[in-house]
């Protein structure tokens, strides 16, 4: 029953993180209370990257071994990753409104995240447009590999293309210790939550495949 441990641990950590965000971390001078989104947005971005790293590794292992378990891992991670990427985009745009006065700005990291989101959307499209299950898995794995390798190039291109992100300034040693602690706890809480959701999704996917087999044969 390791899953229930993960569940309760993530719940406890999330409560602690919430307390730290609203009760402990100081209010930022220039951006005010809005800056609190930062503690949510950074974990979302991190989990999006972690998911796509998982997709990448799972995809390579699937192409190498053709063992369905790796495809199940990659598929589940891609789905959870797409959710977190969406949340990163949404929280980023909520932050952009009070800071820049617009919901959307073609700021490098937001732009790169949007491109990523589109690539992983294609990951699912390829799968649904392929007739055979195993072929779809192979094609999706290729998209997963190409997409992940593309991430640093996209990040580099969009950064050169536009100016700096406030996040980058914050990371340059400008983050006050209480803020850093809050961020780290928030990161930890969401990472545990992520591993819980991922495990849940994997077992769900296993059941789905089981049911499909029973129906088909």
């Amino acid at each position: 029953m390791k899953r229930s441990i993960l569940f309760w641990l993530s719940l406890a950590l999330l409560v602690v993180a919430l307390y730290l965000i609203f009760g402990y971390a100081p209010i930022e001078q220039t951006m005010g209370i809005v800056q609190k989104i930062f503690y949510l947005m950074v974990p979302m971005g991190w989990l999006a990257l972690l998911s796509f790293l998982t997709v990448f590794v799972g995809s390579i292992l699937y192409l190498k071994t053709k063992a369905p378990k790796w495809d199940i891992l990659a598929y589940s991670a891609a789905e959870v990753g797409l959710v977190f990427t969406t949340l990163a985009l949404v929280s980023g745009s909520i932050w952009a409104k009070p800071v820049w006065g617009v919901w959307w700005t073609w700021e490098p990291r937001l732009t790169a995240t949007l491109v990523l989101w589109l690539i992983y959307l294609a990951y699912f499209m390829v799968r649904s447009f392929t007739a055979e299950e195993s072929r779809g898995a192979t094609f999706a794995a290729i998209v997963g590999i190409v997409g992940f390798i593309d991430i640093p190039i996209i990040a580099l291109a969009t950064t050169l293309w536009r100016g700096m992100h406030p996040g980058a300034v914050i990371f340059k040693g400008g983050l006050a210790p209480p803020m850093l602690l809050t961020l780290l706890v928030s990161l930890a809480a969401f990472t545990v939550l992520y591993s819980f959701i991922l495990r849940q999704r994997i077992s769900l996917r296993n059941d789905e495949i089981e049911i499909k087999k029973m129906k088909g044969l």
Partner: peptide
């Protein structure tokens, strides 16, 4: 090799070649 040939290529190709 997919069902919607003409559709799948741009959806895959365009985001990847953004850089």
């Amino acid at each position: 090799n997919t069902k919607a040939r003409e559709l799948v290529l741009p959806v895959l190709f365009l985001p990847v070649v953004v850089p």
